[in-house]
């Protein structure tokens, strides 16, 4: 069953066609990767789904209900949470308070204020940030901030988690750690994940299905293996229509 269903979604900024008639089905419980070069429209697609931007045309159904036109906070309470590629922590608040706010506002049925701190601590433990809970979020390292983006998104108790390059800028060890953490929280929270990632090994490692965007168009969709073998993808990335001949 598809949890998120996008039908012929377009977005133009003046004369620039950022997204052109994109249709996409994200299956419940799956990890769906979004791939494409810079400017392909991946983050724009995220922003439209999350309500940060409006589509020019097209429709978005989440769990069978239309969500286009809703404000970001309403989309969030419906069960969609996103992270930002350029991290946006509440820098002056503690790491725990960052997650508490997500818990208190992002859920359909929020807990009492007095229970939020303990719930936040659980999430921080899950994502490996429990030791930094009392630090100001602004003092975290990049890897910590990326984790906080994920922790805060989890605080809203999403059904669909949208991860925008949470591994960009991390060291290989940190990437491996992040993949392990994400797999764990996906299982424990029963998540569906839509993920944008430039670290290709991470993307192919995690995704069940990958959709490739190129200049705002959807050019391919399939399993990681199918995508790797796809001629259109190779053309978009390498400018050749056929696999390179390797001379012996």
């Amino acid at each position: 069953m598809s949890l998120l269903s996008i039908k012929s979604l377009s977005k133009n900024f003046g004369g620039l066609q950022a997204l052109n008639e994109i249709s996409l089905e994200v299956q419940e419980g799956s990890v769906h990767g979004l791939m494409g070069a810079n400017g392909a429209g991946k983050t724009t697609l995220f922003s439209i789904i999350a309500g940060n931007q409006r589509a020019s045309s097209g429709s978005i159904l989440f769990a069978g209900h239309p969500i286009d036109g809703l404000r970001p906070d309403q989309v969030c309470r419906r069960g969609i949470s996103r992270t930002f590629q350029i991290v946006r922590p509440f820098a002056g608040l503690s790491v725990r308070e960052n997650v508490e706010i997500a818990i208190l506002y992002g859920r359909e049925a929020p807990p009492k204020v007095s229970e939020a701190a303990a719930l936040a601590q659980e999430i921080l433990t899950d994502i490996g940030l429990d030791a930094s809970a009392d630090q100001p979020a602004g003092s975290l390292t990049l890897s910590g901030r990326k984790r906080l983006e994920v922790a805060r998104a989890l605080g809203t108790e999403p059904r669909l988690l949208m991860l925008d390059e949470v591994m960009a800028g991390l060291t290989p060890v940190e990437v491996t750690d992040m993949i392990v953490s994400l797999r764990r929280v996906k299982e424990s929270h029963g998540l569906t994940i839509l993920i944008i990632e430039h670290v290709m090994s991470a993307l192919t490692d995690m995704s069940d299905t990958i959709t490739v965007l190129h200049h705002g168009e959807k050019i391919a969709q399939g399993t990681p293996q199918q995508i790797a073998d796809n001629a259109a993808v190779q053309e978009a990335y390498f400018g050749v229509a056929e696999p390179l001949e390797v001379s012996a």
């Binding site: 999350a50 940060n52 404000r71 970001p72 906070d73 969030c76 309470r77 949470s81 996103r82 930002f84 946006r88 922590p89 509440f90 820098a91 002056g92 608040l93 308070e97 508490e100 706010i101 997500a102 208190l104 506002y105 992002g106 859920r107 929020p110 204020v113 805060r152 998104a153 605080g155 809203t156």
Partner: peptide
């Protein structure tokens, strides 16, 4: 809860609404 929401507004409005703060 109200005060924590206001603190989120002070820190970053875009991030605040993304985690559900009206």
């Amino acid at each position: 809860r109200f005060g924590k929401g206001l603190a989120a507004v002070r820190e970053d409005e875009t991030a605040a609404e993304t985690v559900g703060v009206p």
